[in-house]
């Protein structure tokens, strides 16, 4: 069982309760997933807090990193949604840092990857789309529905275009969440499979060890790729969030 677990690429996604909590029949246990959510916000929060504690005019390296992350997200949001979008800055920055740190923490061996759980990424994207819808209707009322009516479309095509726009809007939370989830999941499975090859082949003596060099090299290369994907997906999540928020701010465009 334990030996099988080692090679089983799915094992890393298993959720195990640490503190079982059951309320009203629901399993609300504090699981390994929840533990890593907490670790994620602690790491991200502590980094941002301590690196900027000195408020130095000439920043240290760590403070520079925090400032770069801040300006990166701020510029992203300003480019996508204009200066009116800056009221969402803490939200987008929190999303970006959460996803980034969760992805990067997932790269540590034996660590749980929070963003490889579809329900977690789906929760985050529903949060984004929910913010867009609620803010859009609150700010623009029914004019928010202009979002689905592109300008300059011939009348005869309009129903079709509106239908397409609505479908694309509804698919946004799905695509947003599945993109992040699938990237993290597939990457970790691939990594685990190749690492598993190394272990399995090494069991066949000298020839096996020699043959294991190839999957080992692959696993090393994939690790680098996964670090890239971890950062890239956090960026993609944040930049799409900015674009959707732009729809909430300027639905008519």
């Amino acid at each position: 069982m334990a030996a099988a677990d080692k090679v089983d690429p799915i094992h890393q996604f298993h959720i195990n309760p640490i503190i079982p909590i059951h309320i009203g029949g629901y399993d609300l246990s504090f699981t390994n997933s929840a533990l890593f959510m907490v670790i994620t916000i602690l790491v991200a929060g502590a980094f941002l807090y301590w690196s900027t504690a000195q408020r130095a005019l000439v920043p240290s390296r760590l403070q520079s990193m925090s400032e770069m992350a801040y300006e990166f997200v701020a510029n992203m949001l300003r480019d996508a949604a204009g200066s009116a979008g800056m009221k969402f800055f803490p939200f987008v920055f929190a999303l970006f840092m959460f996803v980034l740190v969760a992805n990067l923490l997932g790269m540590f061996p034996y660590f749980f990857t929070v963003t490889s759980q579809i329900i977690v990424t789906f929760f985050l994207s529903v949060l984004v789309i929910g913010t867009v819808i609620i803010y859009g209707f609150w700010k623009h009322g029914l004019h928010f529905l202009n979002l689905f009516v592109p300008q300059g479309v011939p009348g005869i095509l309009l129903p079709l275009v509106i239908l397409i726009e609505i479908v694309s809007f509804i698919s946004r939370p799905v695509s947003l969440s599945v993109r992040l989830f699938a990237n993290m999941l597939a990457g970790h499975i691939t990594l685990k499979v190749f690492a598993g090859f190394v272990v399995s082949l090494s069991a066949f003596g000298a020839v096996g060890v020699a043959g294991a060099v190839l999957p080992l090299a692959m696993a090393v290369a994939l690790t680098a790729l996964e670090f890239l994907v971890a950062a890239l997906q956090a960026y993609v999540f944040a930049v799409l969030t900015c674009m959707y928020l732009n729809d909430a701010l300027h639905p008519g465009h």
């Binding site: 959720i15 309760p17 909590i21 629901y26 399993d27 609300l28 246990s29 504090f30 699981t31 997933s33 929840a34 959510m37 907490v38 994620t40 916000i41 991200a44 929060g45 803490p90 939200f91 929190a94 840092m97 959460f98 929070v114 759980q117 329900i119 977690v120 929760f123 985050l124 949060l127």
Partner: peptide
């Protein structure tokens, strides 16, 4: 695992936000 995950991501993300 969905209820537990939703609860904890909501709590942690709210705190982080």
């Amino acid at each position: 695992h969905f209820p537990s995950q939703i609860l904890w991501i909501a709590i942690t993300f709210a705190l982080f936000y």
